[in-house]
Design a protein around this nucleic acid. Structure first.
Lengths: 339, 339
DNA sequence: CTGAAAGCGCTTACAG
DNA sequence: CTGAAAGCGCTTACAG
């Protein structure tokens, strides 16, 4: 039988069964022209009889490309990553590539291990949401021809393609929105400052305050881990003390969740604008006002650029910046008196 | 230089540079014993000079395994899939495997294309959230030694490993909960009936009603697509008409979203229990009562079983069933009078 | 139209 | 301890 457990028929087996040469089998399997109908039929019969399926790994080794792309995320379980992944996957599929995925867990060493493991498999390219602060480890791989596009955050210490959201502009718009609704004392709760997006959004916050001529009390700024307990502590700090804020810009979706869970304990309730949209944001009471990114558009832009590189585009590294969009839903339209 | 664009040094190059045999390079690269320190140093120097990185694709072709697993999801952008993926990824990492991922989009042909593409790459195993209704196409692959574990839904027409949630029990519990709170006319809004989980949850609904001696009006049951418009129409149908329901069990997270968006238009507002938990469920007003699955536990169970198979476990196909858990938060505790 | 030989980059099996 | 030869399953380049 052709079904010996753990072993598979090869083209050689098919050739022997059909009584033809190896190259003829290859021609039939790959649909190349120049095989007589009779020969082709004999090969097809042998393929069916043996249950042959071409080994694409062997094929691609010989061809010198792998028709695969490595996608390195912070955490595939995060909705942001999920939407981005799906978009990358669609583009990869259109180009006949499969996708390796992995989560760095915001750990630089882990990112490097995964990225180099993908490179060792000789992926054609990488799409990377970087966690680390030094990407020089990729230089030999890039020099050897592996394309890489960074997404959501730029690469550090190397010059590379990137698809980013306008984080500064988005944060500015969120803060300006709160100022327009009468707020003067506004907090920014961000992720750790070494995270590029967190630093950029803080910058947008400062710019918007400065533009409106408003002073910033450094006690209104908390750059901290995003676990619920840490966020709750930050919320308590900025809404307590001598100059309590009347409004909060939260720096990403996880921080927004922490703030939302802490809000019921507060009176008065500060106005809130969250960076990143959330699935149920419109169903909360009040609805959650957000500065929304478009993770799918980010993924598409990054993947499109990657495949353009793989097709031979060798222009200097490009930086694609997508806009963030303010979506008012209620929580960001309350005035400083709490209504 | 070693950085000619698009070409990489091989072990042969390293051997030539170091002035040693190919096998000695292989020994050093793989940390095998029996190389003199002097030889090892010369090889290391050549590796560093050339920027050599072993080609794992070539290595694995020779070794007869690929140290990779294919994960086939319905949609990686769905939070359920994301959590499941992360769990599978962690288990794969512990076993030194990389992960190919792909989304079938609930399309049987697409599922088959992706699964067979993974098999053509000779993945060691597959974890599959099946979309199709006939998995016999995988029989030759299974016979050839590719392991497969189905997750969330069982395989159809073949006998295979599976890790499932107790959908019947979960739905029964959700309906029994509503009955305990005084409801007699209860709707079930499910996904298309050919989807295994949808059919199972409907069965649980019927069992719970029968157990309580309550008649079921077939007009209370809607098995339909999960887009918002379709769900809104179903909601209107079961809450209107001659015998309007006072409570709803929604069959999955997407349907729950549709119901939640339609509820504000209804008076009185029916009680609601949703199958699948949602990120912000506790922050809604009222809180959303759910029958929660544990997608990470499903992924872990499936991946653990897969790697046990890859380690040689050839016991008959196993079916792992994980419990669903009722989490009361308010929406499912309102009585039939709407309070 | 057909196929034998060489090679993709490694590891295995085997001599020295 | 060291390495030349054969082979993993294909494709490429080249004769017939």
């Amino acid at each position: 039988m052709s079904t010996r457990y753990g072993s598979r028929p090869t083209m050689k087996d098919v050739a022997a069964t059909a009584g033809v040469g190896l190259k003829t089998v290859s021609r039939v399997v790959n649909g190349e022209a120049g095989v007589t109908p009779d020969m082709a039929a004999r090969v097809q019969a042998a393929i069916a009889e043996l249950g042959f399926r071409r080994n694409d790994s062997a094929r691609l080794l010989r061809k010198g490309r792998t028709a695969s792309v490595g996608l390195l995320l912070e955490d595939i379980a995060d909705p942001f990553s999920g939407q981005l992944s799906r978009a990358v996957e669609e583009v990869a599929r259109m180009h006949g590539s499969l996708l390796f995925t992995g989560s760095s867990g915001e750990d630089a060493r882990h990112e490097q291990e995964l990225a180099l493991a993908f490179c060792a498999r000789r992926v054609d390219g990488l799409v990377v949401v970087p966690a680390g602060g030094d990407h020089r480890y990729l230089l030999p791989e890039l020099a050897a021809g592996i394309a890489a596009v960074f997404v959501d955050r730029p690469a550090q210490l190397i010059d590379a393609d990137a698809a980013l959201t306008d984080n500064v502009g988005g944060a500015r718009e969120g803060v300006a929105h709160l100022i327009r609704h009468g707020h003067r004392r506004i907090a920014f709760l961000g992720d750790l400052p070494q995270i590029h997006t967190a630093a950029e959004r803080l910058r947008g916050y400062r710019e918007a305050m400065a533009e409106a001529g408003l002073p910033v009390d450094e006690a209104w700024i908390a750059m901290a881990p995003t676990d619920p307990a840490s966020v709750a502590a930050s919320v308590d700090r900025v809404t307590g003390g001598a100059a309590p804020v009347t409004a909060v810009l939260s720096g990403n979706n996880r921080i927004t969740l922490g703030v939302l869970r802490r809000l019921p304990a507060l009176s008065p309730r500060p106005a809130l604008v969250g960076f990143d949209d959330l699935e149920l944001a419109d169903l909360l009471t009040p609805g959650l006002t957000v500065v929304a990114q478009d993770p799918a558009a980010l993924g598409r832009a990054a993947a499109d650029l990657l495949f353009r590189r793989l097709a031979g585009d060798d222009a200097p590294p490009r930086r694609i910046v997508l806009p963030a969009r303010l979506i008012p839903r209620g929580s960001g339209e309350a005035g400083p008196d709490g209504r």
